[in-house]
Design a protein around this nucleic acid. Structure first.
Lengths: 194, 194
DNA sequence: GTCCTGACTGAGTGCTCACTCGGTAAATTT
DNA sequence: AAATTTACCGAGTGAGCACTCAGTCAGGAC
């Protein structure tokens, strides 16, 4: 049972680093310090192992976002957008492996044939989209944000955040040097003009 | 020799659709209508085949961007940024396969051990970054763009474009419905306030 | 003590993969 | 016409893969 935990840890790390197809069961077993058979005692298949990991990642991300946002106080809607952006950047470093999973191609391919995977994917994106939409709507009410379409604008903001973090985690770009600038860019994009 | 062309076409399509690891040589041979051996007559290895394809993609993208920008006239720097954004969206549909290659993970992993691959990757990104930086600098001079850091801001814009297109090509999102909105967002982000 | 069950093992299995190689036939050179 | 080169073929090869299975072993129930 202690083994199940170390299998999950080893597999998470390897899937994040090398991707699903490029990590073999024997890689995982070696890193976890177990026999290959033990992996198939705990999980039906390699795909099933991935799903277990992905489900955990979803739970951790969604939970962290919800509690962070609920526990925070914001001046206004625009400030809340800034807060969400900086939370996104924070999580991308705090939960690097979970984000790397999202930048692979396997989950998207699996999602097209596996409803559970598709659900996890959607949940991870919509947990950010929903709070962004909420913040923008609120900002339009309190006057800190100009008149825009909240759903469309939140997707555009998320695309920017995701794009930047992807550059940071995949390329050699020191993109965290751009995070402060990106948060300002969100403000400029949304704030009410005088 | 006609075969070499059809091998390249088949492999491009399959690598874009299924990724490098999930397409086998026999897949490519079947789609190209050749024997497996023919593939290795024209290319040293599967990796070499990928590199040939990637080099072609780089050449097509860079050339298209350069001629498009040179052949266009813009009112001012801000208008040029809008033009580049809409060019990016246009190319992402016109050259869908080339962009899909960029959303896989293989080129980034290969780039860390293969200088040519790394060079192609960099060229494809910097061809957009350079014209964006140029446009922003120009806009700051002609007064259409407020005082910003051109390099940082162009990376943020590119991250947004890339993020959106990635959503469009990977998820089920009808993200092309967001393109007009995204171009407006670029404007709001950069334009001089009165 | 016997039985049972749950956690774990690792050699074994069948399959797929990238790549090789001996050969063929047409085109080109001499 | 002979020799050489170029483009192509597909059965064969060895390695690596996900997954199986017969079996071990500790510990709890009776």
């Amino acid at each position: 049972m202690a083994h199940k935990e170390s299998i999950l840890n080893a597999a998470t790390s390897l899937f994040a680093q090398k991707g699903f197809r490029d990590t073999s069961i024997s890689d995982i077993a070696r890193l976890a310090g177990t026999a290959e058979g033990t992996i198939f005692y705990h999980f039906q298949s390699k795909e099933d192992l991935f799903l277990a990991i992905f489900e955990g990642a979803r739970a951790r991300i969604v939970e962290h976002v919800e509690t962070s946002i609920q526990g925070a106080k914001f001046e206004d809607g625009l400030d809340m957008v800034r807060g969400i952006a900086s939370l996104y950047f924070f999580l991308s470093e705090e939960m690097k492996q979970e984000f790397l999973l999202l930048f692979g191609t396997y989950p998207y391919r699996l999602a097209s044939e596996n409803a559970r995977c598709s659900e996890h994917l959607e949940a991870m994106y919509t947990c950010f989209l929903d709070v962004l939409t909420l913040a923008i709507t609120r900002g339009m009410q309190d006057g800190s944000i100009r008149d825009v379409n909240p759903e469309k604008q939140s997707l555009i903001v998320l695309a920017m955040l995701t794009g930047l973090v992807r550059f940071a985690l995949m390329n050699l770009l020191p993109a965290h040097a751009y995070y402060a600038e990106a948060i300002k860019a969100c403000s400029s994009m949304l704030e009410r003009r005088t």
